[in-house]
Amino acid sequence: MNAAMLEVRDLSLAYGDVQVLFGVSLRVDEGEIVTLLGSNGAGKTTTLRAISGLRPPRGGEVLFSGQSLLAVPASKRAEMGIALVPEGRELWPLLTVRENLELGAYTRSARARSAANLEKVFRLFPRLRERHAQMAGSLSGGEQQMCAIGRALMSEPRLLMLDEPSLGLAPILVDQVFDIVRTLHQQGITILLVEQNLQKALEVARRGYVIETGSVKLSGTSADLLADPAIRSAYLGL
């Protein structure tokens, strides 16, 4: 068995008085694609925000390569090799594509290899090279998603977390995004993928967790989850 790269144990989190997560546990092993599934408001994004350090949890533990992250500020977690592609992209709309990408390599360790990584990102997304001097806010939705993924890749992450990368994209672009996720995985990046599109997500992932109202209801290999009658009726309408 591989070593756990990311381990979340019994994570609970509240926004003010409203508790959102009630003991979420999951693990992602080195080299895996794991998907976190669930409907709107289930707590998927909140789980990612806790892992990336933007929201302090109320209880539980987050371990990265066996090391506790709870005392580590968000900006340091990027340096440790965790990158997030946030929901809705969260690009800097008035900065150019190139500046957005360069900001992705802001950590001291990544800055030295910024130029080489920029070239890599441009090779992966030739469209971004064409548009490098354009403001990120003027890109199409698909291009913005590419830019957000590219920005995350600039820090040479070991763990890439994608929050609903297919959100608001045309079907053909959704296919492209999942192709990219596969490519990145083949290049050796461990991926935690949050999705509402179960079918697509389970096609690329090896294992999955289904989260409902703040706790993990089901987990298993993608094949098991796809075959599960509860999943089929609740999420796939079959």
């Binding site: 990336s52 968000a74 900006s75 990027a78 946030p86 690009l91 900065l95 802001y106």
Partner: peptide
Amino acid sequence: STFGLGLLAIKSDVDAAADVGISPTL
């Protein structure tokens, strides 16, 4: 400078800035 680019990032989206490894507090 690169520092200035970081400031712009903080000004326009603090969370995104922290995500890419910029420390807003510092």
